[in-house]
Design a protein around this nucleic acid. Sequence first.
DNA 1: TAGATTGTTAATCGATTAACAATC
DNA 2: TAGATTGTTAATCGATTAACAATC
Lengths: 217, 217
Amino acid sequence: MRWNKISDAVIRRLPLYLRVLDDLAEESEAESISSQELGVRAGVGPALVRKDLAWFGEFGKQGVGYEIGFLRDELRKILNLDSKLPVALVGVGSLGSALTRYHVRRFEEDASFNLELVALFDNNLTKIGDSVEGIPVYGLEDIKHQVKEKGLKIVIVTVPAQSAQDVVNQFVDAGIQGILNFAPVKLKAPDTVHVVNTDVSLELQRLAYYVPSVSPN
Amino acid sequence: MRWNKISDAVIRRLPLYLRVLDDLAEESEAESISSQELGVRAGVGPALVRKDLAWFGEFGKQGVGYEIGFLRDELRKILNLDSKLPVALVGVGSLGSALTRYHVRRFEEDASFNLELVALFDNNLTKIGDSVEGIPVYGLEDIKHQVKEKGLKIVIVTVPAQSAQDVVNQFVDAGIQGILNFAPVKLKAPDTVHVVNTDVSLELQRLAYYVPSVSPN
DNA sequence: TAGATTGTTAATCGATTAACAATC
DNA sequence: TAGATTGTTAATCGATTAACAATC
Protein backbone atom coordinates (compact mmCIF):
# COMPACT_ATOMS: atom_id res chain seq x y z
CA MET A 1 0.00 0.00 0.00
CA ARG A 2 1.03 3.59 -0.66
CA TRP A 3 -0.35 6.55 1.30
CA ASN A 4 -1.88 9.50 -0.48
CA LYS A 5 0.35 12.37 0.38
CA ILE A 6 1.80 12.63 3.81
CA SER A 7 3.62 15.82 4.66
CA ASP A 8 7.40 15.82 4.74
CA ALA A 9 7.18 17.37 8.21
CA VAL A 10 5.64 14.08 9.37
CA ILE A 11 8.12 11.87 7.51
CA ARG A 12 11.16 13.59 8.96
CA ARG A 13 9.97 12.79 12.51
CA LEU A 14 9.53 9.06 11.89
CA PRO A 15 13.26 8.20 11.97
CA LEU A 16 13.43 10.17 15.22
CA TYR A 17 10.74 8.00 16.77
CA LEU A 18 12.43 4.91 15.40
CA ARG A 19 15.70 5.85 17.07
CA VAL A 20 13.98 6.36 20.43
CA LEU A 21 12.33 2.95 20.13
CA ASP A 22 15.61 1.27 19.19
CA ASP A 23 17.34 2.85 22.19
CA LEU A 24 14.44 1.87 24.41
CA ALA A 25 14.37 -1.71 23.18
CA GLU A 26 17.74 -2.44 24.77
CA GLU A 27 18.11 0.16 27.48
CA SER A 28 14.75 -0.37 29.18
CA GLU A 29 12.77 -3.50 29.97
CA ALA A 30 9.40 -1.79 29.58
CA GLU A 31 7.00 -3.34 27.12
CA SER A 32 5.20 -0.22 26.05
CA ILE A 33 5.58 3.55 25.87
CA SER A 34 3.05 6.39 25.93
CA SER A 35 2.90 9.17 23.34
CA GLN A 36 3.82 11.42 26.26
CA GLU A 37 7.18 9.77 26.92
CA LEU A 38 7.94 9.01 23.29
CA GLY A 39 7.36 12.70 22.69
CA VAL A 40 9.69 13.83 25.47
CA ARG A 41 12.47 11.61 24.17
CA ALA A 42 12.03 12.72 20.59
CA GLY A 43 11.51 16.37 21.46
CA VAL A 44 7.96 16.50 20.11
CA GLY A 45 4.55 17.14 21.72
CA PRO A 46 2.45 14.09 22.69
CA ALA A 47 -0.50 15.08 20.52
CA LEU A 48 1.77 15.38 17.52
CA VAL A 49 3.26 11.94 18.15
CA ARG A 50 -0.22 10.40 18.13
CA LYS A 51 -1.27 12.34 15.05
CA ASP A 52 1.89 11.39 13.15
CA LEU A 53 1.43 7.69 13.88
CA ALA A 54 -2.30 7.79 13.16
CA TRP A 55 -1.56 8.60 9.52
CA PHE A 56 -0.35 5.03 9.09
CA GLY A 57 -2.67 3.00 11.27
CA GLU A 58 -3.86 2.36 14.81
CA PHE A 59 -0.75 1.18 16.60
CA GLY A 60 -1.62 2.01 20.21
CA LYS A 61 -3.86 0.71 22.97
CA GLN A 62 -5.94 3.08 25.07
CA GLY A 63 -4.80 3.29 28.65
CA VAL A 64 -1.54 1.54 27.82
CA GLY A 65 0.39 3.19 25.00
CA TYR A 66 2.40 1.68 22.17
CA GLU A 67 4.06 -1.72 22.33
CA ILE A 68 7.72 -0.88 21.73
CA GLY A 69 8.84 -3.79 19.57
CA PHE A 70 5.68 -3.73 17.51
CA LEU A 71 5.78 0.00 16.81
CA ARG A 72 9.47 -0.21 15.92
CA ASP A 73 8.73 -2.91 13.37
CA GLU A 74 5.83 -0.96 11.92
CA LEU A 75 7.96 2.17 11.58
CA ARG A 76 10.64 0.16 9.83
CA LYS A 77 8.10 -1.09 7.32
CA ILE A 78 6.72 2.40 6.75
CA LEU A 79 10.23 3.73 6.10
CA ASN A 80 11.09 0.82 3.78
CA LEU A 81 13.79 -0.23 6.21
CA ASP A 82 12.49 -3.75 6.79
CA SER A 83 14.75 -5.13 4.07
CA LYS A 84 18.20 -4.16 2.81
CA LEU A 85 18.30 -1.06 0.65
CA PRO A 86 21.45 -0.70 -1.50
CA VAL A 87 23.10 2.73 -1.40
CA ALA A 88 25.83 4.31 -3.56
CA LEU A 89 28.24 7.15 -2.89
CA VAL A 90 29.89 9.30 -5.53
CA GLY A 91 32.96 11.43 -4.85
CA VAL A 92 35.56 9.50 -2.87
CA GLY A 93 37.42 12.51 -1.52
CA SER A 94 38.05 13.08 2.17
CA LEU A 95 34.39 13.73 2.96
CA GLY A 96 33.24 10.78 0.87
CA SER A 97 35.74 8.44 2.50
CA ALA A 98 34.80 9.67 5.96
CA LEU A 99 31.11 9.12 5.31
CA THR A 100 31.90 5.68 3.92
CA ARG A 101 33.73 4.68 7.10
CA TYR A 102 30.97 6.19 9.21
CA HIS A 103 28.30 4.37 7.27
CA VAL A 104 30.02 1.01 7.25
CA ARG A 105 30.59 1.15 11.00
CA ARG A 106 26.94 2.03 11.58
CA PHE A 107 25.86 -0.84 9.34
CA GLU A 108 28.07 -3.34 11.16
CA GLU A 109 27.08 -2.24 14.64
CA ASP A 110 23.34 -2.05 14.08
CA ALA A 111 21.96 -5.24 12.61
CA SER A 112 18.72 -3.55 11.61
CA PHE A 113 20.28 -0.54 9.90
CA ASN A 114 19.31 -1.77 6.49
CA LEU A 115 20.89 0.93 4.39
CA GLU A 116 23.87 -0.85 2.88
CA LEU A 117 26.60 1.03 1.07
CA VAL A 118 27.59 -1.27 -1.80
CA ALA A 119 29.21 0.89 -4.47
CA LEU A 120 31.46 3.94 -4.63
CA PHE A 121 32.08 6.08 -7.70
CA ASP A 122 34.80 8.53 -8.64
CA ASN A 123 36.31 9.98 -11.81
CA ASN A 124 39.87 9.78 -10.50
CA LEU A 125 41.71 6.98 -12.31
CA THR A 126 44.00 6.37 -9.35
CA LYS A 127 40.95 5.57 -7.17
CA ILE A 128 38.94 3.47 -9.63
CA GLY A 129 39.39 -0.23 -9.01
CA ASP A 130 40.52 0.52 -5.48
CA SER A 131 38.21 0.05 -2.49
CA VAL A 132 37.36 1.84 0.77
CA GLU A 133 36.32 -0.23 3.76
CA GLY A 134 35.94 -3.13 1.38
CA ILE A 135 33.58 -1.30 -0.96
CA PRO A 136 34.73 -1.09 -4.58
CA VAL A 137 35.26 2.22 -6.40
CA TYR A 138 33.87 2.36 -9.94
CA GLY A 139 34.34 4.92 -12.70
CA LEU A 140 31.47 7.20 -13.67
CA GLU A 141 31.09 5.25 -16.92
CA ASP A 142 29.87 2.28 -14.86
CA ILE A 143 27.03 4.18 -13.19
CA LYS A 144 24.27 2.88 -15.45
CA HIS A 145 25.48 -0.69 -15.30
CA GLN A 146 25.99 -0.76 -11.53
CA VAL A 147 22.70 0.95 -10.73
CA LYS A 148 20.92 -1.76 -12.68
CA GLU A 149 23.02 -4.67 -11.43
CA LYS A 150 23.06 -3.74 -7.75
CA GLY A 151 19.58 -2.25 -7.74
CA LEU A 152 20.89 1.03 -6.33
CA LYS A 153 18.08 3.26 -5.12
CA ILE A 154 19.88 6.03 -3.24
CA VAL A 155 23.09 7.92 -3.89
CA ILE A 156 25.12 10.09 -1.53
CA VAL A 157 26.75 12.94 -3.46
CA THR A 158 30.09 14.24 -2.17
CA VAL A 159 31.63 15.61 -5.34
CA PRO A 160 32.77 19.24 -5.81
CA ALA A 161 30.00 21.77 -6.44
CA GLN A 162 30.82 22.29 -10.10
CA SER A 163 30.49 18.62 -11.05
CA ALA A 164 27.49 17.81 -8.86
CA GLN A 165 24.73 18.55 -11.38
CA ASP A 166 26.47 16.59 -14.12
CA VAL A 167 27.03 13.56 -11.90
CA VAL A 168 23.48 13.71 -10.61
CA ASN A 169 22.11 13.76 -14.15
CA GLN A 170 23.92 10.50 -14.83
CA PHE A 171 22.41 8.84 -11.77
CA VAL A 172 18.96 10.15 -12.60
CA ASP A 173 19.29 8.75 -16.12
CA ALA A 174 20.30 5.43 -14.64
CA GLY A 175 17.11 5.39 -12.56
CA ILE A 176 18.19 6.41 -9.07
CA GLN A 177 15.30 7.48 -6.82
CA GLY A 178 16.82 9.34 -3.87
CA ILE A 179 19.75 11.73 -3.53
CA LEU A 180 21.51 12.89 -0.38
CA ASN A 181 23.44 15.92 -1.57
CA PHE A 182 26.43 17.39 0.27
CA ALA A 183 27.50 19.68 -2.57
CA PRO A 184 26.67 23.34 -2.01
CA VAL A 185 24.41 23.73 -5.04
CA LYS A 186 20.72 23.61 -5.74
CA LEU A 187 20.30 20.46 -7.81
CA LYS A 188 17.77 20.12 -10.58
CA ALA A 189 16.07 16.74 -10.73
CA PRO A 190 12.70 15.41 -11.90
CA ASP A 191 9.86 15.27 -9.37
CA THR A 192 10.09 11.49 -9.30
CA VAL A 193 13.52 11.79 -7.64
CA HIS A 194 13.66 12.91 -4.04
CA VAL A 195 16.55 15.22 -3.11
CA VAL A 196 17.69 15.94 0.44
CA ASN A 197 20.33 18.60 0.94
CA THR A 198 22.92 18.79 3.71
CA ASP A 199 25.10 21.85 3.50
CA VAL A 200 27.60 22.40 6.28
CA SER A 201 28.52 25.94 5.21
CA LEU A 202 24.88 26.96 5.14
CA GLU A 203 24.29 25.55 8.62
CA LEU A 204 27.32 27.35 10.01
CA GLN A 205 26.23 30.63 8.46
CA ARG A 206 22.82 30.18 10.02
CA LEU A 207 24.43 29.51 13.37
CA ALA A 208 26.46 32.71 13.02
CA TYR A 209 23.24 34.72 13.16
CA TYR A 210 22.59 33.52 16.68
CA VAL A 211 26.12 34.27 17.82
CA PRO A 212 26.50 38.03 18.06
CA SER A 213 30.13 39.04 18.58
CA VAL A 214 28.90 41.46 21.18
CA SER A 215 28.32 39.45 24.33
CA PRO A 216 24.62 39.47 25.22
CA ASN A 217 23.45 40.98 28.51
CA MET B 1 20.87 46.45 17.22
CA ARG B 2 19.05 43.21 17.91
CA TRP B 3 15.75 42.21 16.31
CA ASN B 4 12.87 41.07 18.45
CA LYS B 5 12.27 37.52 17.46
CA ILE B 6 12.59 36.55 13.86
CA SER B 7 11.51 33.06 12.92
CA ASP B 8 14.12 30.42 12.28
CA ALA B 9 12.34 29.69 8.99
CA VAL B 10 13.40 33.18 7.87
CA ILE B 11 16.97 32.89 9.18
CA ARG B 12 17.66 29.65 7.39
CA ARG B 13 16.86 31.27 4.04
CA LEU B 14 19.24 34.18 4.46
CA PRO B 15 22.43 32.17 3.77
CA LEU B 16 20.67 30.87 0.67
CA TYR B 17 20.07 34.40 -0.59
CA LEU B 18 23.63 35.30 0.31
CA ARG B 19 24.99 32.46 -1.78
CA VAL B 20 22.92 33.51 -4.79
CA LEU B 21 24.21 37.08 -4.46
CA ASP B 22 27.81 35.90 -4.14
CA ASP B 23 27.45 33.77 -7.27
CA LEU B 24 25.78 36.64 -9.07
CA ALA B 25 28.44 39.16 -8.07
CA GLU B 26 31.06 37.41 -10.18
CA GLU B 27 29.07 35.50 -12.77
CA SER B 28 26.86 38.33 -13.94
CA GLU B 29 27.55 41.98 -14.63
CA ALA B 30 24.07 43.10 -13.62
CA GLU B 31 23.85 45.74 -10.92
CA SER B 32 20.56 44.70 -9.39
CA ILE B 33 18.20 41.77 -9.06
CA SER B 34 14.45 41.51 -8.54
CA SER B 35 12.79 39.47 -5.80
CA GLN B 36 11.41 37.42 -8.68
CA GLU B 37 14.81 36.30 -9.95
CA LEU B 38 16.43 36.05 -6.54
CA GLY B 39 13.52 33.80 -5.62
CA VAL B 40 13.93 31.55 -8.64
CA ARG B 41 17.63 31.10 -7.94
CA ALA B 42 17.09 30.38 -4.26
CA GLY B 43 14.04 28.21 -4.82
CA VAL B 44 11.67 30.53 -2.96
CA GLY B 45 8.61 32.56 -3.97
CA PRO B 46 9.15 36.25 -4.79
CA ALA B 47 6.72 37.49 -2.13
CA LEU B 48 8.55 35.49 0.50
CA VAL B 49 11.89 36.93 -0.56
CA ARG B 50 10.56 40.46 -0.09
CA LYS B 51 8.94 39.62 3.22
CA ASP B 52 12.09 37.96 4.56
CA LEU B 53 14.26 40.95 3.67
CA ALA B 54 11.71 43.46 4.95
CA TRP B 55 12.21 42.13 8.49
CA PHE B 56 15.63 43.78 8.50
CA GLY B 57 15.09 46.99 6.57
CA GLU B 58 14.17 48.50 3.22
CA PHE B 59 16.88 47.28 0.91
CA GLY B 60 15.16 47.54 -2.46
CA LYS B 61 14.06 50.20 -4.91
CA GLN B 62 10.64 50.12 -6.51
CA GLY B 63 10.73 49.41 -10.22
CA VAL B 64 14.37 48.29 -10.00
CA GLY B 65 14.99 45.60 -7.42
CA TYR B 66 17.87 45.06 -5.02
CA GLU B 67 21.40 46.34 -5.62
CA ILE B 68 23.44 43.13 -5.57
CA GLY B 69 26.60 44.28 -3.80
CA PHE B 70 24.68 46.32 -1.27
CA LEU B 71 22.23 43.55 -0.37
CA ARG B 72 25.07 41.06 -0.08
CA ASP B 73 26.86 43.34 2.39
CA GLU B 74 23.68 43.87 4.39
CA LEU B 75 23.02 40.14 4.59
CA ARG B 76 26.59 39.58 5.78
CA LYS B 77 26.06 42.08 8.56
CA ILE B 78 22.76 40.55 9.57
CA LEU B 79 24.36 37.09 9.75
CA ASN B 80 27.37 38.40 11.71
CA LEU B 81 29.58 37.40 8.82
CA ASP B 82 31.06 40.86 8.24
CA SER B 83 34.04 40.08 10.46
CA LYS B 84 35.98 36.90 11.24
CA LEU B 85 34.21 34.48 13.56
CA PRO B 86 36.48 31.87 15.18
CA VAL B 87 35.22 28.29 15.05
CA ALA B 88 36.34 25.12 16.86
CA LEU B 89 35.91 21.45 16.01
CA VAL B 90 35.97 18.60 18.49
CA GLY B 91 36.49 14.97 17.48
CA VAL B 92 39.35 14.64 14.99
CA GLY B 93 38.29 11.29 13.55
CA SER B 94 37.76 10.68 9.87
CA LEU B 95 34.64 12.85 9.72
CA GLY B 96 36.25 15.61 11.77
CA SER B 97 39.38 15.61 9.60
CA ALA B 98 37.31 15.62 6.43
CA LEU B 99 35.23 18.58 7.61
CA THR B 100 38.43 20.35 8.63
CA ARG B 101 39.89 19.98 5.14
CA TYR B 102 36.58 20.98 3.59
CA HIS B 103 36.30 24.03 5.80
CA VAL B 104 39.88 25.20 5.33
CA ARG B 105 39.57 24.94 1.56
CA ARG B 106 36.35 26.93 1.63
CA PHE B 107 37.97 29.58 3.81
CA GLU B 108 40.97 29.90 1.52
CA GLU B 109 38.96 30.06 -1.69
CA ASP B 110 36.32 32.50 -0.53
CA ALA B 111 37.83 35.67 0.92
CA SER B 112 34.53 36.67 2.53
CA PHE B 113 33.77 33.32 4.15
CA ASN B 114 34.50 34.66 7.59
CA LEU B 115 34.02 31.48 9.59
CA GLU B 116 37.59 30.57 10.49
CA LEU B 117 38.45 27.20 11.96
CA VAL B 118 41.21 27.95 14.48
CA ALA B 119 41.25 25.09 17.01
CA LEU B 120 40.67 21.34 17.00
CA PHE B 121 40.09 19.19 20.08
CA ASP B 122 40.40 15.48 20.73
CA ASN B 123 40.93 13.18 23.72
CA ASN B 124 43.33 10.91 21.86
CA LEU B 125 46.88 11.50 23.17
CA THR B 126 48.42 10.52 19.85
CA LYS B 127 46.52 13.34 18.14
CA ILE B 128 46.98 16.08 20.74
CA GLY B 129 49.81 18.43 19.80
CA ASP B 130 49.50 17.35 16.20
CA SER B 131 47.77 19.49 13.58
CA VAL B 132 45.41 19.03 10.63
CA GLU B 133 45.65 21.42 7.70
CA GLY B 134 47.81 23.60 9.92
CA ILE B 135 45.25 23.83 12.71
CA PRO B 136 46.48 22.63 16.12
CA VAL B 137 44.81 19.79 18.03
CA TYR B 138 44.29 20.43 21.76
CA GLY B 139 43.25 18.11 24.57
CA LEU B 140 39.80 18.44 26.13
CA GLU B 141 41.43 19.90 29.25
CA ASP B 142 42.34 22.97 27.21
CA ILE B 143 38.76 23.74 26.16
CA LYS B 144 38.11 26.44 28.73
CA HIS B 145 41.44 28.14 28.15
CA GLN B 146 41.25 28.08 24.37
CA VAL B 147 37.63 29.22 24.19
CA LYS B 148 38.61 32.28 26.22
CA GLU B 149 41.92 32.93 24.48
CA LYS B 150 40.72 32.49 20.90
CA GLY B 151 37.24 33.89 21.55
CA LEU B 152 35.64 30.73 20.15
CA LYS B 153 31.92 31.19 19.54
CA ILE B 154 30.93 28.11 17.58
CA VAL B 155 31.96 24.46 17.85
CA ILE B 156 31.47 21.65 15.34
CA VAL B 157 30.89 18.36 17.17
CA THR B 158 32.11 15.17 15.46
CA VAL B 159 32.71 12.90 18.44
CA PRO B 160 31.01 9.51 18.95
CA ALA B 161 27.41 9.62 20.19
CA GLN B 162 28.18 8.43 23.70
CA SER B 163 30.68 11.20 24.44
CA ALA B 164 28.82 14.03 22.70
CA GLN B 165 26.79 15.28 25.67
CA ASP B 166 29.81 15.29 27.95
CA VAL B 167 31.98 17.19 25.50
CA VAL B 168 29.20 19.66 24.77
CA ASN B 169 28.78 20.34 28.49
CA GLN B 170 32.41 21.35 28.67
CA PHE B 171 32.06 23.77 25.78
CA VAL B 172 28.87 25.21 27.23
CA ASP B 173 30.63 25.74 30.56
CA ALA B 174 33.44 27.48 28.72
CA GLY B 175 30.94 29.89 27.17
CA ILE B 176 30.41 28.63 23.62
CA GLN B 177 27.30 30.04 21.93
CA GLY B 178 26.59 27.86 18.91
CA ILE B 179 26.89 24.13 18.26
CA LEU B 180 26.82 22.27 14.96
CA ASN B 181 26.20 18.69 16.02
CA PHE B 182 26.97 15.67 13.84
CA ALA B 183 26.54 13.10 16.62
CA PRO B 184 23.29 11.14 16.44
CA VAL B 185 21.93 12.25 19.81
CA LYS B 186 19.55 14.91 21.07
CA LEU B 187 21.82 17.29 22.95
CA LYS B 188 20.73 19.12 26.06
CA ALA B 189 21.94 22.71 26.26
CA PRO B 190 20.72 25.93 27.85
CA ASP B 191 18.44 28.19 25.79
CA THR B 192 21.25 30.70 25.44
CA VAL B 193 23.16 28.20 23.29
CA HIS B 194 21.92 27.53 19.80
CA VAL B 195 22.16 23.93 18.58
CA VAL B 196 21.89 22.85 14.95
CA ASN B 197 21.76 19.12 14.21
CA THR B 198 23.00 17.35 11.11
CA ASP B 199 22.40 13.64 11.16
CA VAL B 200 23.32 11.68 8.07
CA SER B 201 21.63 8.45 9.20
CA LEU B 202 18.39 10.27 9.89
CA GLU B 203 18.43 11.91 6.48
CA LEU B 204 19.07 8.61 4.74
CA GLN B 205 16.25 6.94 6.64
CA ARG B 206 13.95 9.75 5.61
CA LEU B 207 15.02 9.30 2.02
CA ALA B 208 14.25 5.59 2.26
CA TYR B 209 10.58 6.43 2.75
CA TYR B 210 10.44 7.97 -0.70
CA VAL B 211 12.18 5.00 -2.30
CA PRO B 212 9.78 2.08 -2.36
CA SER B 213 11.52 -1.13 -3.39
CA VAL B 214 8.55 -1.80 -5.60
CA SER B 215 9.05 0.23 -8.74
CA PRO B 216 6.32 2.88 -9.03
CA ASN B 217 3.93 2.83 -11.98
C1' DT C 1 5.10 59.55 -18.29
C1' DA C 2 4.66 54.29 -18.49
C1' DG C 3 6.42 50.07 -16.76
C1' DA C 4 8.33 47.59 -13.19
C1' DT C 5 8.91 46.23 -8.68
C1' DT C 6 9.02 47.21 -3.90
C1' DG C 7 7.06 46.93 1.06
C1' DT C 8 3.04 45.69 3.39
C1' DT C 9 -1.59 44.22 4.47
C1' DA C 10 -5.09 40.79 4.03
C1' DA C 11 -6.22 36.04 2.63
C1' DT C 12 -4.93 31.41 2.49
C1' DC C 13 -2.83 27.47 3.57
C1' DG C 14 -0.72 24.07 6.51
C1' DA C 15 1.00 22.39 10.75
C1' DT C 16 0.64 22.04 15.74
C1' DT C 17 -1.92 21.92 19.97
C1' DA C 18 -5.99 21.36 22.92
C1' DA C 19 -9.77 18.80 24.17
C1' DC C 20 -12.44 14.84 24.78
C1' DA C 21 -15.24 10.68 23.82
C1' DA C 22 -13.98 5.93 23.32
C1' DT C 23 -11.93 2.14 25.48
C1' DC C 24 -8.18 -0.71 27.20
C1' DT D 1 -14.52 -0.50 38.24
C1' DA D 2 -11.17 3.59 38.13
C1' DG D 3 -7.26 5.46 35.87
C1' DA D 4 -4.74 6.10 31.88
C1' DT D 5 -4.08 6.94 27.26
C1' DT D 6 -5.44 6.46 22.57
C1' DG D 7 -7.37 8.33 17.95
C1' DT D 8 -9.67 12.17 16.21
C1' DT D 9 -12.02 16.54 15.76
C1' DA D 10 -12.00 21.40 16.48
C1' DA D 11 -9.23 25.49 17.72
C1' DT D 12 -5.08 27.86 17.39
C1' DC D 13 -1.01 29.28 15.75
C1' DG D 14 2.41 30.39 12.32
C1' DA D 15 4.13 30.63 7.76
C1' DT D 16 3.38 31.44 2.87
C1' DT D 17 1.04 33.60 -0.91
C1' DA D 18 -1.86 37.02 -3.23
C1' DA D 19 -2.89 41.56 -4.04
C1' DC D 20 -2.05 46.29 -4.50
C1' DA D 21 -0.94 51.17 -3.34
C1' DA D 22 3.34 53.63 -3.32
C1' DT D 23 7.08 55.05 -5.98
C1' DC D 24 11.43 54.57 -8.50
